[in-house]
């Protein structure tokens, strides 16, 4: 926290952003299990479907876009609580709010770090799940790109829920209740993109919509996240 604790307001926004990003990445790389757990969860959920529903390759290829997307969504959801939890518990969050730096930028950097440690590896690992579920090779590009954009939106929206529930002892189920309804549009367009890729249709429309959600999220979500964090910490 050395970079942030300086009381001078002269640190630029870019420096602030990269300082928080670096710190959060460092912290999560020190706790490797938190880094790996969502990925294992992602893999396990995708394993449940062939075993629980049907191992038929044609059926699996049909449901693969949705299954991979739902698994990625759930993996993100489970990791959300960690965005603010440890900082809240040890009082860092309070110090950040008291510091003269804009909370919004700090929140955006934290979300970015969360995405880089969950969404990015999930997206990079998704072709493996695609192969497990007999997704055609032609759809892999759509899968990875839609997950790259989509998981960032999921992190942004999810951070609002994480901020709202960080002050609660039993935030676990509540955060899913708050965040899942807002995840539905991302899921629809994300898996829509993969389905279009499977069918050989152009992806541009779906990816543009996901990109629009991302643009809207980057602009507006930090406002809501910082308001949520402030409410939770001061309340």
């Amino acid at each position: 926290m050395a970079e942030l604790c300086t009381n001078s307001a002269e640190i630029s926004l870019g420096q602030l952003f990269s300082a928080v990003l670096k710190r959060d990445l460092l912290l999560s790389f020190r706790r490797k299990s938190d880094l790996v757990n969502p990925l294992i969860f992602f893999l396990m959920v995708a394993t449940l479907f062939p075993l629980g529903v049907s191992p038929e390759p044609t059926f699996l290829a049909d449901v693969a876009p949705g299954v991979v997307w739902v698994a990625a969504l759930l993996a993100t959801l489970l990791s959300l609580d960690g965005i603010f939890r440890s900082d809240y518990d040890d009082g860092t969050l309070e110090q950040v709010i008291l510091s003269p730096q804009p909370l919004m930028v700090v929140c955006l950097a934290k979300v970015m770090a969360h995405w880089m440690t969950t969404g990015l590896p999930l997206a990079l690992m998704s072709p493996l799940l695609g192969v497990m579920l007999f997704l055609p090779m032609s759809a892999m590009f759509g899968l990875v790109v839609s997950l790259l954009i989509g998981t960032f939106v999921l992190s942004l929206i999810g951070a609002i829920g994480a901020g709202l529930t960080v002050g609660l002892k039993r935030g676990g189920v509540l955060i899913s209740l708050l965040v899942l309804p807002l995840y539905i549009p991302v899921l629809i367009f994300g898996s829509g993109a993969v389905q279009a890729a499977v069918a050989g249709l152009p992806l541009a429309g779906y990816l543009a919509l996901l990109g629009a959600m991302l643009a809207l999220g980057i602009v507006l979500a930090p406002l809501a996240i910082s308001a949520a964090v402030r409410i939770s910490v001061t309340g």
């Binding site: 949520a228 409410i231 309340g235």
Partner: peptide, 13 residues
Amino acid sequence: TAAKAASVLSLVG
């Protein structure tokens, strides 16, 4: 606190 948190959530929704 509940009122503020719920307001943020309903504004997002």
